[in-house]
Amino acid sequence: MKIIVPVKTNPDLQMVRIKNRQPVLEAVPYILGDLDKNAVEAALQLQAEAGDTQVIALTLNQGNRKIKDTMKEALAMGADEAYIVTDDALVDTDQAGKALAIAKAIETIGGADVIIFGEGSHDGYSGQVGPRVAELLGVPEIGFARKLTPGGPGIQAERSMGDFIEVLEAPLPIVITVASEINEPRIPTLMNIMKAGKKPSTDWTLADLGLEAADVAPKNKILSNLAEEQDRKNIMLEGDVNAQVAALIDALTREGVLEA
């Protein structure tokens, strides 16, 4: 079996500061998103269960100068091979453009039996790319999986629909998106981090996929992207726990939020 995990490396949101309502992205390091790690972990667990399976991590470089290092994390977790598509045209593309490039890259790799995405990216969280890729490849798709088992006609998946759980099955090839509850991504061991550097990693541009910049031109226009204004008192209550709590009750009473 061949599993491709398209992952996104994005700015570490915990390091993004807001200045004059604008997000400041300079000097913010790129990381593999949490949901992307859930997707890699899900692929590795399927590999362990199904046996004789290759796990390939694929990414589009959207301006991460250290993309090779970031992708090493997927390899250190256990992916067998990495593909990185780098192109200036990808920096400002949108979900439609990304889906096209990913679908073409999957075809250029030679297809896959299972393609696993996170249910959304860490920064944008649009959840569009997985379903779009399924449509481009003409394969079925199951979103928000919380459990995956090889078997039946191909694969069985469980997903939460809020109030209830659905158990689904489908033949391969298929696109799956996973929810964070599916697993706890493994933390790579030092040994595997060392080995990751030796695993095969292939660099492509859009031309290698038979695409031009115009093919990934954005269909959406972002008019503005600003932080909401927040004005909080930021009062720290001092003293031992009894003094802190007494001061809090005092303050909340004055605020009028403790009246019955």
């Binding site: 997000p23 920064d123 226009k221 503005s224 992207n225």
Partner: peptide
């Protein structure tokens, strides 16, 4: 950005 900003598109 996880909710840090609101984008108008």
């Amino acid at each position: 950005f996880g909710g840090a900003t609101v984008a108008r598109e």
